[in-house]
Write a protein that binds this DNA or RNA. Sequence first.
DNA 1: TCTAATT
Length: 505
Amino acid sequence: MYIKMATLANGQADNASLSTNGLGGSPGSAGHMNGLSHSPGNPSTIPMKDHDAIKLFIGQIPRNLDEKDLKPLFEEFGKIYELTVLKDRFTGMHKGCAFLTYCERESALKAQSALHEQKTLPGMNRPIQVKPADSESRGGSSCLRQPPSQDRKLFVGMLNKQQSEDDVRRLFEAFGNIEECTILRGPDGNSKGCAFVKYSSHAEAQAAINALHGSQTMPGASSSLVVKFADTDKERTMRRMQQMAGQMGMFNPMAIPFGAYGAYAQALMQQQAALMASVAQGGYLNPMAAFAAAQMQQMAALNMNGLAAAPMTPTSGGSTPPGITAPAVPSIPSPIGVNGFTGLPPQANGQPAAEAVFANGIHPYPAQSPTAADPLQQAYAGVQQYAGPAYPAAYGQISQAFPQPPPMIPQQQREGPEGCNLFIYHLPQEFGDAELMQMFLPFGNVISSKVFVDRATNQSKCFGFVSFDNPASAQTAIQAMNGFQIGMKRLKVQLKRPKDANRPY
DNA sequence: TCTAATT
């Protein structure tokens, strides 16, 4: 791509435009360059930056603004060397933040003091963030090296909702220098009863924990003050996964692809699948991770089967090659692709429409309405075009979405050999046989699944049985799924007691 | 009761 850039930049016109507006390429080269940027290997055509230039992190950017929209805002403070909106590697989704480097260090300082926390971009409910990127303080030999903020940032819970930043500061200032103190607030500005407090050092933070955790109960709080280190990124990821699993009642196979935000959900799935996979590779594995990763991959696989796959492709300036979904998810041997979702009859899930699912806390754009320029909005439009906006109509479409719809094979109720049959308790109420099977397919060949229902009410009794064709799969499933949290409950997964063997389901 | 995000 640099070759192309060089060619373009060598023309006088391009050269001139580079030096005046900081744009790193012509529209023709934008496909690879993420907006405003340029080739470092091409210095004669490119503005130089100071050696002590500061790379800034910009946060709280509305997701419908790209580099060209942001440029005017920042150009005011000096010539821009590079401006890059952060996008998700796989989905191309705008992450709501950017990196910005000015040619001159002074410009960065001016921009920071003029903009940081000073202005709120349309649709955002918190002010814009303009501060040196994390990479700046750590790597360089620069004067003040800061410890990673993760080690000195505290989460404070069980605050009174009336308490302000100042109140919290007063409580914590005795233990060290507070660099940051933020009350968490909802979109309405109401306190969520918790806060983050960042000290200059780990020791100060630890001192505050020792002195304050559990030390008092705020009026109106349900238990004593919580003071602990804030979640790490990994922990946050886990937390989100867990919430998602709970809210979605475990991945309704039908509702997701057709809801208003189906495309969004799928983007999220893919993103999370990739995330989970990388987390798992990092050696951080728990039952949640295993199952979530497996489920996500299934969603991604479903997506690749045709439905909404095309609209998912980023539309402009994408750094994401087409078809990226496949490499994004390392394959776990799983038969799900052939007999997973697609074999489920629509009637099998007595689930609400996707809109209802997503109304329960998952919103693609919490603070703004998407614009037509937004890739996701286009994705949605694509889904509409493909499957039709009406939910029931989607059922008619599904057979078209899959080239060869697998026939619905009525399941034989049969048990596996000893050691292959699992008893599962604390299933979600809405789980039927199909969902139960779906949940355990990632671990092997499921030869039967049965949720017990109350004969009078036809309601699930929230327990059931799953049989694999080999004991190893059964053990893997126990390892991964026993204790797995769904909503408020944790699954109990254990071998079925052999004495029941003579009693067919 | 874990922000909004750090290539």
